[in-house]
């Protein structure tokens, strides 16, 4: 479909979940997270937290775009983990996403690192 680039519904978006030994839970997001796909991310994170995950890594290495709805989902995750003594780290190397975090000031709230290993280290400290 040639027009797919302008149609967020047909954008490739996928989530992979991984529970690592040591109790960390990794959600890797690829594609674009916007109003149409953010609910999937929200549900996945919520289920992980309900399932007992307290050390959460959201891997945005393959994420090309985050809209404000997606930011809301990440903020919600941080807020849910805080009273549970949980932690969340974000893996990101994509400049536009980094720019979004910087513009909104979320870079001061989230733990944002460049690799998954750094993230695991950050949340288990």
């Amino acid at each position: 479909m040639p027009d797919s680039a302008s149609d967020p519904i047909t954008f490739d978006f996928s989530l992979t979940e991984e529970r690592l030994s040591g109790g960390a839970y990794v959600v890797a997001v690829s594609g674009e997270v916007d109003i149409f796909t953010a609910p999937d991310l929200k549900r996945t994170i919520a289920q992980a937290i309900e399932g007992g995950a307290r050390m959460l890594v959201v891997d945005l290495t393959n994420t090309r775009f985050l809209d404000s709805t997606a930011l809301g989902v990440l903020i919600g995750a941080v807020k849910r983990l805080r009273p549970l003594d949980g932690r969340l780290a974000i893996v990101n190397t994509e400049p536009s996403t980094a720019k979004t975090f910087q513009i909104t000031g979320l870079d001061r709230i989230f733990t944002i690192v460049a690799t998954r290993d750094e993230a695991l280290k950050a949340i288990s400290d």
């Binding site: 000031g105 979320l106 001061r108």
Partner: peptide
């Protein structure tokens, strides 16, 4: 200069 978004607990 810029501040963080509103409602982030800043």
């Amino acid at each position: 200069p810029r501040g963080a978004a509103l409602g982030l607990g800043a």
